[in-house]
Design a protein around this nucleic acid. Structure first.
Length: 911
RNA sequence: GGGCGUUUAACUCAGUGGUAGAGUGCGACCUUCACACGGUCGAAGUCGCAGGUUCAAAUCCUGCAACGCCCACCA
């Protein structure tokens, strides 16, 4: 149904200037109703759909970040997703075939944790599957009984229930904020296609010899009981204490003191180490030391890595206290004395054996026995107590207590899993690794091939890549994830043969080695001597997430589609996951195809709360979006997001939302005014174009300023600086268009005392400018611009949705002659301001009629003023005027005298 | 310890060599025929600090400080 009123005699330009029935419009923009209605229309008309038939060159591919479906969205999501959408909408208007998919990251520990809490369950991979198991939700109160044990399959089903609900809620919000996603192009990181592609990725890396399966000390979280990669870590400053412990030199009565923060690892001590140039300890290198309590002989060696200024300058190497211990263990080929189990508790070991030698096994075992089963904190207390006992001195001849003095409290950084609560341990386990260390130079090269916006974010990538200190551990001992597609033969003696893993052929993917049998075996042979066993692990979630460009393009599953969608054009993301998501995605694309995954990385900043802290769920300072969307409209919220420049952290500020809402209202009203202006009885040649009707100097001068805005906005968008484009457009719209131009031409548009030609020129200019401004605003304000567009432009221009209308160009305006004087518009505005100022000084409103005014005009402006003077006098309602040409200060207009119509006379004068 | 970013009006932020800007807030005035979810006018800043380059510096260089982020080897 059209809002455009029927015209009597329709010519092309007359139709373009058709009047809308203003009285049919509501007094205000009914945002909530319109948002829902437009979403439905856009969906029905498929205006955000990617067209696979168009060539790559016309396509704009987005590698959308799949949000972690974690229950609720906050303003941080709205913020960064809007940035992407604004860019995408502008590219679509440029005529590009946009591929804008949406994914859901439902893999991983956060989901597991939530499911455990929601249903109060724990997963046991060995538990039997219970078909049709339905469990109640436990709610918020902490249940007292133990969690119910469920099988891996049941657990995954519960995860699916929870994530699916979350996806619905996310989609609803994303639609509300008008993300122009092609909702046919969705995926979840646990779905068949993603599992398929992740497993294909694994097989491809295997074929390219970029994988390793090794048993080695690995960073381990004792709570989650899984291996971790460097990127999963955070440093946390924690309290600790230096414990000074006396060691003896074997076969002498000499001793030295080491300083350690981890005395509980004393039984795991395998060596002692100092700097090669350290005169204090030079004499000991090559000899053996004896540990206190356990009386283990350990090598004393020299290493550049030892810092003579730290502690006492000499330190104990344990298996494993930290990453340096691992380095020394490897370089020095030290023995392994693992005392911590996967659960982070001390496990039973026996002293006086080859692995745990001791000069006094009886005493050592007696001292060790109470430690068994204790966690690190408890064990430390017990060991410290033992060290206070002189009987445990390392010295053969006996001595004082091994612990010298009181422990010295310190604060030091400790490596922890980013989602964990206890420090990591290094525990020897068998894991799969992707080789990164040998590929560092190529990775840096690829990182430089990608354009980073803002550019300085590239430094983060370089920094991280240069400092990488290990390969990528991709196996996780979890349940909810993509299974690693591997089996191992079980030898006749029942041992697992890790040296000869069995892999599925690609045609069997996606698969789960825990329920599928390898070729040549039957399910009955699972875990039997001479049979096989499945790898129970799943991939690191980043192993799948790092394939998002390939997931969108279907990669090996559809090479033709892949060629059209890979590499992507932009990867939008936030800066804290450069080391993970950006890094791993670059690594995968490089390892698989020697390519970069995308041409541009566009980095959004963070939303900070008013105290400038990152807004995050764990901080409890989250502002929920729904209320704000209701109060300020989606466009208002999007305005706020689009006001922040790329990469800049922004404090959340409701004032900016308010400004956004005001802009929406202003567009509604300005649109209503412009489209309600009638040309009256003016006759328009039927062969005239709307551009050719623009004949007045002021109008041409206004159009000329509009050209500059189009150029500025277009250039800004090319560099993803949507905020600059918005600012330029907004500034022009508000101060030049509504506050100035609209006021200057109102009288002329009404046809008061002017000829038809000038009246039509004003209306044509209003229309044309509104049409351009709406399109310039459309990427940021999709709802209000679509609304105003629908009143007339949609029909007149034959472009039903503004979001498929062409982005404005100066070429559109090429047929409109330049103004005789480019300064005409500013000159008119300047005089209007001077008159308004005078009225304000007189206490009169700007709309008050002026009987007479005497205006001092500087000589230089006199001639130039001629062409726009009538518009100024009309808009300022000056009935009689006298121009006095004279010099003024700063060549400004000066109102020498003004007589306004008194209030009481006004009513009479008006009619 | 290394790197990056930020520092401009009360607040949120533009401004990369040429007379300090916007919006909000504040003050005064204005029921005006698109809009009071409005309009007009106004007050308000040693551009973090100290040096330097230049005819000229918020802008370029050097140093420092505060705040934030990323990274680093937990003895």
């Amino acid at each position: 149904m059209s809002r455009v009123m029927p015209m009597k005699k329709i010519s092309a330009p007359a139709a373009a200037l058709a009047v809308i029935d203003v009285s049919a419009l509501p007094p205000h923009f009914e945002a909530a109703a319109k948002e829902a209605a437009f979403d439905a229309v856009w969906e029905k008309n498929g205006i955000y759909q990617w067209d696979p038939s168009r060539p790559r060159g016309e396509t704009f591919v987005v590698d959308t970040p799949p949000p972690t479906v974690s229950g609720s969205l906050h303003m941080g999501h709205v913020f960064s997703y809007t940035h992407t959408d604004v860019i995408v909408r502008q590219r679509r208007m440029l005529g590009m075939n946009v591929f804008y998919p949406m994914g859901w990251d439902d893999n991983g520990l956060p989901t597991e944790r939530r499911v455990q809490n929601i249903f109060h369950v724990r997963c046991d991979a060995n538990a039997a599957y219970e078909p049709g198991l339905a469990l109640p939700r436990v709610g918020d109160k902490k249940p007292t009984e133990r969690p119910r044990i469920v099988s891996r399959k049941n657990f995954i089903e519960l995860c699916a229930i929870v994530t699916h609900e979350d996806e619905k809620a996310f989609e609803a919000l994303f639609r509300r904020i008008a993300l122009s996603v092609d909702w046919r192009q969705t995926y979840a990181t646990i779905d068949d296609r993603c599992r398929h592609l992740a497993q294909l990725s694994f097989l491809d890396l295997l074929e390219k010899k970029q994988l390793a399966n090794v048993e080695a000390p690995t960073m381990w979280d004792v709570d989650f009981q899984t291996a971790l990669a460097q990127a999963d870590l955070k440093d946390v400053i924690r309290p600790g204490a230096y414990h000074d412990i006396q060691f003896a030199i074997e076969g002498s009565d000499e001793s030295f003191v080491i300083s350690t923060t981890r005395p509980e690892l004393l039984p795991a001590c395998v060596a002692v180490c100092a700097h090669p140039n350290d005169e204090r300890f030079k004499k000991y290198f090559g000899k053996h030391a004896i540990t206190p309590i356990f009386k283990a002989p350990v090598r004393i060696f020299a290493s550049e890595l030892a810092d003579p200024t730290k502690g006492t300058g000499i330190l104990m190497v344990c298996t494993f206290g930290d990453a340096t211990d691992v380095t020394w263990w490897r370089e020095q080929k030290l023995p392994t004395r693992q005392i911590l189990g996967k659960d982070g508790r001390v496990k039973l070991v026996e002293f006086g054996t080859e692995t745990f030698p001791s000069k006094d096994p009886l005493a050592a075992n007696a001292a060790f026995a109470p430690l068994v089963g204790k966690n690190v904190t408890q064990a430390q207390k017990l060991v410290v107590d033992l060290l206070k006992d002189a009987a445990h001195s390392a010295l053969a001849q006996g001595g004082s207590a091994p612990l010298q003095g009181e422990p010295k409290k310190i604060e030091h950084p400790v490596k922890m899993y980013e989602k964990g609560e206890r420090p990591l341990e290094f525990i020897t386990t068998r894991q799969w690794f992707v080789k990164l260390m040998p590929n560092k130079p190529v990775l840096l090269e690829k990182g430089a091939e990608v354009k980073w916006w803002p550019e300085f974010m590239h430094a983060r990538f370089q920094n991280w890549t240069e400092n990488l200190n290990g390969d990528w551990c991709i196996s996780r001992q979890r349940y909810f994830g993509v299974p690693i597609p591997v089996w191992y033969p079980v030898l006749p003696d029942g041992a697992t043969d890790h040296e000869h893993p069995l892999f599925p052929t690609p045609d069997r993917l996606p698969m789960d080695p825990m329920s599928d049998a390898p070729k040549g075996f039957t399910e009955a042979q699972r875990n039997q001597p001479g049979g096989f066993t499945g790898d129970p692990d799943v991939f690191d979630t980043w192993f799948t997430s790092s394939l998002t460009p390939q997931i969108g393009s279907h990669w090996l599953l559809d090479p033709e589609r892949h060629a059209k969608l890979f590499p992507a054009d932009i990867r939008p993301q936030s800066h804290e996951i450069i080391r993970t998501w950006a890094f791993y995605t670059i690594a995968k694309a490089m390892l698989h195809e020697g390519k970069v995954p995308w041409r541009n990385v566009v980095i959004s900043g963070w939303i900070l709360d008013p105290d400038r802290k990152k807004m995050s769920k764990s901080e409890g300072n989250v502002v929920t979006p729904m209320k704000l969307l209701e109060d300020y409209t989606s466009d208002g919220v999007r305005y706020w997001a689009a006001s922040a420049r790329l990469g800049m952290d922004t404090a959340f500020d409701e004032k900016v939302l308010k400004v956004g809402k005001k802009l929406v209202t202003k567009l509604f009203n300005a649109g209503k005014y412009v489209l309600g202006q009638s040309i009256g009885d003016a006759a328009i040649p039927s062969d005239a174009s709307i551009e050719s009707l623009i004949t007045s100097e002021l109008d041409r001068a206004m159009i000329h300023k509009l050209r500059a805005v189009i150029e500025k906005a277009t250039a800004s968008f090319a560099e993803f600086e949507y905020a600059n484009a918005l600012m330029a457009t907004e500034q022009f719209f508000w101060s030049q268009f509504t506050d100035t131009y609209l006021e200057l031409v109102k009288v002329r548009a009404r046809g008061e005392g002017v000829d038809d030609r000038d009246r039509v020129s004003a209306i044509a200019t209003l229309r044309l400018t509104l049409g351009v401004l709406l399109r310039l605003f459309a990427p940021v304000l999709p709802y209000i611009t679509e609304e105003v567009w629908s009143w007339a432009f949609a029909e007149v221009r034959g472009q039903p949705s503004i979001h498929h209308a062409p982005w404005p160009t100066v070429t559109e305006l090429a047929t409109i002659p330049r103004p005789a004087d480019e300064g005409s518009f500013d000159l008119a505005a300047e005089l209007m301001t001077a008159i308004n100022k005078k009225k304000t000084e007189l206490g009169a409103s700007t709309g008050r009629l002026v009987k007479t005014a005497t205006i001092a005009v500087p000589e230089a402006k006199r001639g130039r003023l001629e062409a726009v003077l009538q518009d100024v006098l009309g808009s300022t309602r000056i009935a009689e005027h006298t121009l006095v040409v004279r010099a003024t200060e700063g060549d400004a207009f000066v109102i020498d005298a003004m007589e306004v119509v008194p209030k009481e006379e006004r009513a009479a004068a008006e009619h």
